[in-house]
Computed example of a mutant assay.
Amino acid sequence: MTSSPAPQAASVPVPFRPGLEGVPATQSAICDIDGIRGLLTYRGYPLEQLAANSTFLETAYLLIWGELPTIFQLRDFEQEVQMHRRVSFRIRDMMKCFPAGGHPMDALQASAASLGLFYSRRALDDPQYVFDAVVRLIAKIPTMVAAFQLIRKGQDPIQPRDDLAYSANFLYMLTEREPDPIAARIFDRCLILHAEHSLNASTFSARVTASTLTDPYAVVASAVGTLAGPLHGGANEDVLEMLEEIGTVDAVESWLDQAIKARKKIMGFGHREYKVKDPRAVILQKLAEDLFLRFGHDAMYDVARRLEEVAADRLGPKGIYPNVDFYSGLVYRKLGIPRDLFTPIFAIARTAGWLAHWREQLGANRIYRPTQIYTGSGERAWLPLESRPAVV
């Protein structure tokens, strides 16, 4: 007698979460966030320790390869990055064809993607290929950002200087002046703060692209395109505009009350992960104060501090506090960086995190293919053109 097949278990509907909020999409050993206590670690190391003691290239090495480098590993990595800072004249010529009024993030996305044409060999199982790709992207992204800034001003790009460290060299290429050592160190610490932050939108984009086993240049280009959106990478520009709109310390309280009443978004406040002040904002505030001691005060900082004080009373009970964008724009402005380069600088730093997730994705890859909840029409019969009802 033939036994009947076992009954199939009824499928359990998966709840829909807009924006995948709270839905685990991967397992990762790169970054950990404790949003209740305001803690952020890279590979287990507290961000505060890295910002105080490390350099961006050392932190990038940690993120990408999982451990702090030895003195010899760091020296070799720094030398390799230094040797690969220059970009092909063909990429510079391509950038000269970009419209001067185009946004630097669009220029960066196109330029990053173009690297795949110059290094088209794809050998994702070859450790040397992976190392070389990491070096090229870490080295060349800053050069391309600085090059477009000068090209759109009608000037030729400045070649990198081999005697300058990573951050000092970028500021030199950008401003045509060798930076003050304090400014260069503060900028380097800013890059550390922005290097990684778990599975945010651009990092998720990078992992989805990486899961198709395309080349790492396409992975970074896709992440740059995602970071360009105003809900992700551009908020620090909006913070400065908000502070300028408020204008003075005395106007803060009334401005904030009106903004809350009108349900207006307070730029630089609130984060999906943190219910306390973003630990990166704490460090950035101190960096801003260090810059002001060296190069002069910025009156907008007083407006920002007062806004934070008043907002703590109005918004703090809801778990809304300053995030990483609140003070970073003030730091970049004091460093003489144009406002529309704030997000490309974010991309320079976050390239380290994107590449770390690229390597991790390759280690246990499965292409991303989430499901959906269909909300369209039921099955319908096709109608000839003359039989279709007129649309009013």
Rank of each mutant, 00 (worst) to 15 (best):
P216C: 14
G102F: 05
Q49T: 04
R280L: 02
D106R: 08
R359I: 12
F77Q: 03
S222K: 00
L164H: 14
I33P: 04
I348W: 00
H197D: 10
M173S: 04
I283Q: 01
L335M: 12
I192S: 06
I192T: 15
A281N: 07
V130G: 06
V134Q: 01
G319D: 05
M94V: 03
T59I: 02
D34M: 05
D180Q: 05
K275R: 14
F295S: 02
L47F: 13
V239T: 05
H197V: 09
V239M: 09
T226H: 10
Y274C: 07
G329A: 04
A228T: 10
H197T: 10
K261F: 11
A228H: 12
M173D: 02
R85L: 04
D106C: 04
I186N: 00
T59K: 01
R185F: 08
P5Q: 08
Q73V: 08
G376K: 04
G154E: 05
D132Y: 04
E58K: 14
E245A: 13
L39W: 12
V239L: 10
T212E: 05
I348E: 01
A52R: 11
L63V: 02
Q149D: 09
D257G: 08
A299D: 14
A352D: 00
A347S: 14
D302K: 11
G225K: 00
D126M: 12
V87A: 04
T212M: 09
A201L: 11
G376Q: 02
E309T: 12
T209R: 05
K275W: 08
S254Y: 14
Y301K: 06
G378E: 04
L47A: 05
D238P: 03
A29G: 12
G116R: 00
W382I: 14
I260L: 15
L191F: 04
L227D: 02
L315Y: 07
T248K: 15
A184H: 00
Q8K: 13
V219N: 01
E289Q: 12
P181H: 03
A9K: 09
P179F: 05
L330H: 06
D290H: 06
P7S: 13
W382R: 11
S114D: 01
L227R: 01
K264E: 02
T59H: 01
N200I: 01
R306C: 15
Y45Q: 14
P157T: 00
A183W: 00
E253M: 13
K286I: 03
I320S: 01
G102Q: 06
L315A: 10
L117T: 09
T26I: 09
A364T: 09
D93S: 06
N236I: 03
D238T: 12
Q361R: 03
L57F: 06
T214V: 15
R136S: 04
L137V: 11
G378R: 14
V130F: 07
A311H: 00
R177T: 13
L227E: 02
R305D: 14
G270C: 07
R350N: 05
E67A: 15
I260Q: 11
A210S: 15
H271T: 07
D126V: 06
E379F: 08
Y172N: 02
P181G: 03
A195D: 07
Y45P: 13
E58A: 08
A251Q: 11
M105L: 11
F187T: 01
P344I: 02
V303N: 05
G66K: 02
H297C: 13
S88V: 10
K140S: 12
I182M: 08
E178M: 02
H84F: 09
S114N: 07
Y217R: 00
Y327L: 07
